[in-house]
Nucleic acid binder design. Structure first.
Length: 850
RNA sequence: GCCGAAGUGGCGGAAUGGCAGACGCGGCGGUCUCAAACACCGCUGAGGGCAACCUCGUGUGGGUUCGAAUCCCACCUUCGGUACCA
């Protein structure tokens, strides 16, 4: 037998299927990852990953989300932090009900089976979750506190009841947006035409915090998320102005019509008024001969989605209602329209239309042949110049025109003057409005937290007493084959005694939006079993805000804004002291199916992680998911390339266990590269290891896991060049291998633990887990080099590279660059006009064209 | 529609004002082997040239700069959100 064949058979094969379960058991029996929340000797680090929804579509996407976060938890522990890394399940929601309606059974059964499967998978990943802190939101011990906090919000005036329209199917009741299909808006289940129905529903007063929610000064969040939330809240400064209705044959007039405008300076340009079709004054104002057309338009508008209504692409529609309004500033009579581009929920549900200075009003005026009157002009336009489009820009030198006594004023000043003038008679006031709406939390569904109030004939709406919480969901559910709320016909649930008078009362059957559950769950992780309140205040004070939150960008606005709102509302109820929930946020991307669509069973594009784990082991799958690309990017799933990552782990295995083996196919095996001395080689090994450590540390901190792994691969390639040479197995070699294992440990915890445990006994150390080791320190001296290469450009094009000593000053570098034969030839005797030294990294020689 | 993001070799991607294509996949060539697989070593953006080397090249069109994948303007395409999916 040859030596190479011998060396190959000398070590055992890397077999993740035996290594991984063994270490998972060992870690769990050592209770390595339970967090002592009362330990204050180390800095705390609360690491939170968005808890999963236990859908039936278990797929690789769940691993993609959790794996890097687990690596981060391990990385922080190696820095000495007391890491709290909990997990739970967002267990209420629509898919469980859909499954129950379709297949029979109870949403609880379906959900719990999915949770059990998910727990198993998350364990097989080798993730270090603090399982004893687990929270399942569908458990009465959790949702009880949703109810309790709802009652506190009610006391604080933060919860209230109001009417609002829902999409309604006659067979299936209320529908979610994605349950309404097609442009003719039909029910996804039964195909019936969807109508709007006004229901009394519960709201939380998010708008009370609009101003505070615009302040991001206490948190370090990605800019796109801050921008999206800011735009979502949509603060506008302007004024409310009172128009009045004009007398006409069918109407005495004199009603106040309040509008909101951001441009009071353009009031003289208001040539018509537009009300939302839902505006309460419309029925009274509509002229008898217009009534049929108005009613038809209202009906049509109610069937449109908001996205559709706000589309600026669509041709403007509307109807004149046959009544006029009086402009408060000049007494002018202008016609009133209804149009669906005005929404009842924003501002006052009525606008003054100024076609000359608003694009939507301009389009509407064009479509209906209405007057367009310029009231703002720049020096190069005249007051009467015809307009081809609305003028909305703001210029320094613009002045009001056609505006009576306000002519000639700068627009801003004129606007303030107009508001001040009207304010004298109470017809105007400066006003800030927000696009943000209060949070509608009522859901006409079974599988959610019951809203804890009852309706009593004598006492009206009465909150359930704290001591009667939780209001439990009934254990049996009868969907009667439809999507309508089963609680509505569950007599045992409905029947209640009024907490105030003891008389007969009917229970509220609406349940809460599941976003309530996810708006405070990280507080509950700290004391999941606490029976006398939602949050253990002392633990919350020491552990929250969360240090790092990770989750998908699809939650950039709603979940994250609701969580910020809830934190502030809980603070104002005296439950906690935080102003913000999450100090740092990272949005990872989303793994799609190979077809580029979201993974789901129904699309048949689901990649099951179990298959991959069986074939390659969890470490390979973890590493591959981190190596695929930047974590904030995501993209379509493709297993192409997973073999390369597996090969990398095999190479780490070989290097660790068999440093003296030689590469069978390498003609240079066993020889130092390029006639390097042993001393050179030692230096090169140390330089490679410590530079890698410096870069890898930066990459972990910045969540650049793909390049982190690439750098570990490079180090592995370097080490392979020295395998079998005289330096292999020496001190520098061993140091490099130790560093490689430590750097890789957070990402590939099993193989590194195994190799760590097999270090030669000569090291003389008792076994300790690699995951309890400290992160290594960079030896700066080892990373320095004596020469550096400087690229030389001529007019920005790379023409040569020169080698200079590492400490060469710019003058020396420049002289060397100009002395290079290639450069001299290119310059052909011309003198450089400029020579640019880019921070010592590069030299650019600029010569004018000959 | 509106708000946010992305677009680079055959593929995933690296480089965020300074050497385009790190690292990996795939492909090609080689070594090892009785052979295959595995493993290992090397080459691999396009075009031209015997070669040294030259030209082109980061969605499209313009601009700023000594220098642009990177910054600015306009557009195209794809993805996320759009308030009852979570």
């Amino acid at each position: 037998m040859t030596e190479t064949a011998d060396s190959r058979s000398r070590i055992e094969r890397y077999d993740p299927t035996t290594i991984e379960p063994r270490w998972q058991d060992r870690w769990s029996s050592l209770r390595l990852y339970e967090t002592d929340l009362h330990d204050t000797s180390r800095p705390k680090y609360y690491l939170l990953t968005m808890y999963p929804y236990p859908s039936g579509d278990l797929h690789i996407g769940h691993w993609y989300i959790k794996t890097p976060t687990d690596a981060l938890a391990r990385y922080r522990r190696m820095h000495g932090d007391n890491v709290f890394y909990p997990i739970g399940f967002d267990a209420f929601g629509l898919p469980a009900e859909n499954a129950a309606i379709k297949n029979g059974g109870h949403p609880f059964t379906w959900t719990m089976a999915n949770i059990e499967n998910m727990r198993r998978q998350l364990r097989s990943m080798g993730a270090t979750f603090a399982w004893e802190s687990e929270v399942v939101t569908a458990d009465p011990s959790y949702y009880r506190w949703n109810q309790w906090m709802f009652l506190r919000f009610l006391e604080q005036g933060l919860a209230y009841r109001a009417k609002s329209p829902v999409d309604w199917c006659p067979n299936d009741g209320t529908l979610a947006r994605e349950q309404v299909e097609g442009t003719d808006r039909r029910c996804w289940r039964c195909g019936a035409l969807v109508e709007k129905r006004d229901l009394d529903q519960w709201y939380l007063r998010t708008t009370a915090y609009a101003e505070e929610l615009l302040d991001f000064s206490q948190i370090d969040w990605p800019e796109p998320v801050r921008i999206m939330q800011t735009n979502w809240i949509g603060r506008s400064e302007g004024a409310e102005l009172d128009f009045t209705t004009a007398a006409s044959d069918h109407h005495p007039g004199g009603d106040i019509l309040r509008v909101f405008t951001t441009r009071p300076d353009t009031l003289f340009g208001a040539t018509f008024m537009v009300l939302a079709p839902e505006h309460p004054l419309v029925p009274a104002l509509a002229a008898p001969d217009r009534r049929a057309e108005v009613d038809a338009y209202i009906e049509q508008a109610r069937r449109r989605t908001e996205i559709d209504r706000l589309s600026t692409d669509r041709d403007k529609t509307g109807v004149a209602i046959g009544a006029d309004a009086i402009n408060p500033v000049n007494g002018e009579r202008i016609p009133i329209f209804i149009a669906d581009y005005v929404l009842s929920g924003y501002g006052t549900g009525a606008i003054m239309a100024v076609p000359a200075h608003d694009e939507r009003d301009f389009a509407f005026a064009r479509a209906f042949g209405l007057q367009i009157r310029r009231v703002v002009a720049t020096p190069d336009t005249t007051a009467d110049a015809p307009m081809e489009s609305a003028y909305v820009a703001h210029a320094e030198d613009e002045r009001l025109v056609n505006s009576g006594p306000f002519d000639g004023m700068p627009a801003d000043e004129g606007g303030r003057a107009i508001v001040a003038k009207l304010a004298e008679t109470g017809a105007a006031e400066p006003k800030v409005t927000y696009r943000l709406r209060d949070w509608l939390i009522s859901r006409q569904r079974y599988w959610g937290t019951p809203i804890p109030v009852v309706y009593c004939d004598t006492d009206g709406i009465v909150p359930v007493r704290d001591e009667d919480l939780p209001v439990r969901l009934p254990e049996t559910v009868d969907y009667k084959g439809s999507g309508s709320n089963p609680l509505d016909h569950d007599e045992a649930f409905l029947k209640a005694a009024c907490p105030r008078c003891g008389g007969p009362a009917r229970r509220e059957t609406d349940t809460m939006d599941t976003f309530i559950d996810s708006s405070w769950y990280w507080f509950r992780y700290l004391s999941p079993d606490k029976a006398d309140g939602p949050v253990e205040r002392t633990l919350a004070d020491s552990w929250t805000p969360v240090d790092q939150y990770t989750g998908g960008a699809e939650h950039a606005v709603m979940h994250l804004l609701y969580s910020r709102f809830f934190t502030k509302a809980m603070r104002d109820c005296g439950l906690i002291g935080d102003d913000e929930p999450f100090r740092r946020l990272f949005n990872q991307g989303q793994i799609l199916g190979a077809d580029g669509e979201r993974m789901s069973k129904s699309r048949g594009n689901v990649q099951d992680p179990d298959e991959l784990v069986q074939r390659y082991g969890a470490d390979t799958v973890r590493l591959f998911l981190m190596f695929m690309g930047p974590w904030d990017q995501g993209g379509p799933w493709s297993p192409t390339g997973i073999g390369g990552v597996h090969r990398f782990l095999n190479r780490v295995w070989t290097l660790s266990l068999d440093p003296h083996g030689r590469e069978a196919g390498d003609p240079d095996a066993g020889r130092l590269p390029d006639g390097e001395s042993a001393e050179d080689a030692t230096k090169a090994l140390r330089a490679a290891a410590h530079r890698t450590l410096r870069d890898v540390t930066d990459d972990y901190e910045a969540f650049h896991f793909n390049t982190m792994i690439a750098k570990l691969m490079e180090l592995t390639n370097t080490l392979f060049r020295y395998r079998g040479t005289p330096v292999a197995g020496g001190a520098a070699w061993s140091e490099a291998i130790h560093m490689l294992l430590l750097m890789l440990a957070p990402a590939a915890p099993h193989i590194t633990e195994e190799l760590w445990s097999r270090r030669p006994a000569a090291d003389g150390w008792p076994w300790t887990s690699i995951h309890a080791e400290s992160w290594p320190a960079v030896d700066e001296a080892a990373t320095t080099q004596s020469v550096r290469e400087v690229p030389v450009q001529v007019n920005g094009k790379l023409r040569d590279r020169i080698e200079v000593s590492a400490d060469a000053d710019p003058a020396t570098v420049e002289a060397a660059a100009l002395a290079s034969p290639k450069i001299t030839a290119l310059l052909a005797g011309r003198t450089p006009d400029r020579v640019i030294h880019a921070g010592g990294k590069l030299v650019n020689i600029v010569v004018r064209d000959a």
